[in-house]
Design a protein around this nucleic acid. Sequence first.
DNA 1: CTTACCATGTAAGGCGTTACATGATTCA
DNA 2: TGAATCATGTAACGCCTTACATGGTAAG
Lengths: 185, 185
Amino acid sequence: MANEKKIDCVILGLLSHEALTGYEIKKRMDTALSYFWGASYGSIYPALSDLVARGLATKKEYSENNRKKLIYTITDDGRDYLKNWLALPVEKDELRYETLLKLFFGNEKGPAQAMTHIEAFEKKIENRLPYLLYAENILTEHLEADPTHKYYLLTVRFGIKTYRTYLEWCGEAKALLKKNQGNAD
Amino acid sequence: MANEKKIDCVILGLLSHEALTGYEIKKRMDTALSYFWGASYGSIYPALSDLVARGLATKKEYSENNRKKLIYTITDDGRDYLKNWLALPVEKDELRYETLLKLFFGNEKGPAQAMTHIEAFEKKIENRLPYLLYAENILTEHLEADPTHKYYLLTVRFGIKTYRTYLEWCGEAKALLKKNQGNAD
DNA sequence: CTTACCATGTAAGGCGTTACATGATTCA
DNA sequence: TGAATCATGTAACGCCTTACATGGTAAG
């Protein structure tokens, strides 16, 4: 019962909402979950087969516009498995911020280099923020009609808040680097 | 020249400041780098041997209080390797927030369960924040005397800002869950 | 007609954690 | 004298990414 693989849990979690194809699961990860989780096809498809083999999901062939899709549905056992995992305490939250890593060792290359990394980071965040704001709007509007999305909304708000903090930090970091560069305004 | 392993880069980055033992490197990761990077002994020690084999670091036996230590020093080649990596654009920043994952699927188990995860997260962050604040004080004080720590300070401030945002979010998330639970104060 | 996207997978290999193994020293 | 911390490492195994392979459809 121990050692739940995270990839199984994410997939079951997504399937607990609605039946999905492997491709759609990947899409969800790249959008709705992108700021706190990720996975590649190379882990998604094998995991799906495995879930079916263990009776935690079922697979159905489905045809849309003459194009066949494989849709996965969570089973009762799958739902139990998910619930069991959800009740366990969180093992670890981890980040691997290469940007911060490069910045940490910034004195090897100087402020100009550090500035470049900060600006690239800033742009990446600025590009992603609108999606989250859009999602927040939709979710807030439908909150009373569909309260099951309350949790989704909470994670979106986490994303928005942290992204805005990142942007704030970028501004401050750039200011500090400029100030210390020796040329006042 | 491509495919720089991150573990090599972190270690070289730490060694670029001062010569260290494997044990000390691990310590740095668990404190100064903890909120944006991590590694285990099982990756640190083999990486150190490898760096020596490639001429990017040297190893010296050293005795302190009759206890032998293996101290690693960065070489000129190591410094070049590090600088080269620092100049490359950031490949990816990634987070794996199990807390957010469990929260995302929270409607399977309800608000009480979600609350538990949020509170555990909150406590973890509250416990770690003081270390960062302490580090910020020290670094700010010594900033003019030792400007090489400017970059370290930037990452510490990143940690503080994001941690504070996390705590803010915890408060809001708990409020939303309570409100929707149906019992107004 | 070709680029982008939809859609599903496999294989190799890398990377890194966990668990194990060992032993010294310090502090209560 | 026992626990905690210092200190260094190895081996097995697991997990996941990258790259590869294939082919349909939609839009310009």
